[in-house]
Design a protein around this nucleic acid. Sequence first.
DNA 1: CGCTATATTGAAAACGCTTTCAGGAAGCGC
DNA 2: GCGCTTCCTGAAAGCGTTTTCAATATAGCG
Lengths: 349, 349
Amino acid sequence: MLTAAPRQAKQRPTISDVARLAGVSIATVSRVVNETAPVSDEVGERVRSAIELLGYTPHVAARNLAGGRTATIGLLLPELSSSFFTPLLRGVEAAVRQTDYDLLIYANPRTSQGYDTQRRQPIGVHNADGMLIFSTTLEDQEISRNWEHGFPMVLLHRLPPRGVNVPSVLFDNRSGARLAIHHLISVHNRRRIVFLHGPLGNQESDEREIGYREALQQQGIAFDPALVRRGGFSESGGYQAVQELLREGVAFDAIFSGDDEAAVGVLAALREAGRRVPAEVAVVGFDDLPVAQHLTPPLTTLRAPIEQAGYLAATGLFTLLASGEADAQTVLPVELVIRQSCGCAPPSP
Amino acid sequence: MLTAAPRQAKQRPTISDVARLAGVSIATVSRVVNETAPVSDEVGERVRSAIELLGYTPHVAARNLAGGRTATIGLLLPELSSSFFTPLLRGVEAAVRQTDYDLLIYANPRTSQGYDTQRRQPIGVHNADGMLIFSTTLEDQEISRNWEHGFPMVLLHRLPPRGVNVPSVLFDNRSGARLAIHHLISVHNRRRIVFLHGPLGNQESDEREIGYREALQQQGIAFDPALVRRGGFSESGGYQAVQELLREGVAFDAIFSGDDEAAVGVLAALREAGRRVPAEVAVVGFDDLPVAQHLTPPLTTLRAPIEQAGYLAATGLFTLLASGEADAQTVLPVELVIRQSCGCAPPSP
DNA sequence: CGCTATATTGAAAACGCTTTCAGGAAGCGC
DNA sequence: GCGCTTCCTGAAAGCGTTTTCAATATAGCG
């Protein structure tokens, strides 16, 4: 069954309609709507009731055009496939809601093949007052260009390109990784620890690898390149990486997974192969996604304050918007959450 | 350390700049940008290179104002707290990406206290060409009003208010619930099946309850109101509901949870109370969220094609936008995914 | 009572783009 | 070659606001 719109809709009221009904000029209406200049009580009241009567809502496009402000911020995300983005979005949303800004979201802009002149930049000066850029969703070159044009941005999970001092919000990935590795080594006496790297070019993952190496070094364990694999921040990536390791016959007694999603795949692959976790192989993740505590065994992981990161990035952007400046870098601490996949005992009930 | 924008940015180029550089009128530039009228090859080329050189991007607000089209659709969501929305967003995004529309997202609009004249409608004619409305995120009255104004909408997870023929996309909740209950009764011989209702006013949940009752009746089991509880579609809701049941000493041998999130809480509460699942209490969820398969025991649940629902709702909206009509109702089938929480045996390895 | 400072208000210009309306050029048939 | 299409292009009128600038009215002061 089909459905269609009802008879031609009545025209929506404009500021002129309100002005006419209230017997004032449109300038006055604008002033009472925006509270941008004093208006006598009587006139104000008249305007307000005209607005009420007509059900008037300002037309944002007109407003943007005239005011040079879109009252919108953009958020650039890679694909929304991961549950990682739920808390992130929540944080951003919470910050946005405290303002009068709108939130425009773009996912996976990199998939777009080729250039369409009209849309080469999904979000930019033309449709937002500022934007939040997650990881590598916008090329360095574009970031620089925006920066030079004075377009406010805050980076999430990545550092700015060289020479471009864009504020960014990051996790302390290096310390986090060190924490995990030290725990595996000193508490559980593991020596052959696999590190699962994230997607190519992922800075966070690079940092984690550095932490991993630092920890090994501090503990006097030689770095073995054969133990570093690409897990891709996805369940299938983790799964495949472990299968590969197994197929190649590489010896290992622990896996530090690039993130929790990959850890899900890691656990599945190990289970299928009959390797007991944590007895034979200890596993540690990163992020502490909701799923981590429900895995078998419950996943020991590094808790990243994802929601907070989203919130801080957004509030940082608003600060930037309001004052023209903001903290250049915010590094959020990461905490080791001990469950059972690392070999620690379950809490006594 | 603070950061600020660089020296005053150069003005962004407008259509006039392009026209001047190419030596044509702005009308011509508009025509080549929008391919809205034939332009000679030579002129077209000149304009295109001017655009390239200047890095021109049309100003959307101006475009909207002049064209009467925002090229944006809105999505109204309750809070983003649940991982339920990840697949939904993914589906919507996929559909949006195939068009030249933008996606504006509002979460939790109901939280806003009081009325701000300017923002009483977060999304509407003033900033979008159409909108997707999830569940009860917009009041019936507003839906009707929009409908009368001819504003295109598609409803997700809810039916339109009486007399308002807005297209909607739904799950076949009733059949799904029946499937689950029949399974619990005929395969696992359960008789005292608790039903966990979702949030108040949630139509999907109402439908599920109807299916629950129908199935009981078909199997000749009397309906016991004491077995119907409110789980609230949240982990804590499910947890509390079970605690309450236990505290009141109500006898039950199965729980049909309103959704998977609540089921997570249900399992936790049962575990704490020492009730074995599925031996003493069988549990079935709804949605088949990613977490379902990782629970202990793996959750038997009804798989709802959430991503598809998002995709269909969005494409439906685009159809409506393009042709003025769309399918009035789309009911998506739901499938019983058998794992172990219902009492079925694990698949032999 | 005359004059200046103050408080409100209106007229009109911008904002950057789309689109209608015409005009000029080029192509066609005879 | 002439008149009539057919194409391509430009001028200009909005689109619905915000915002400056000036005007009017009121109040205050001596």
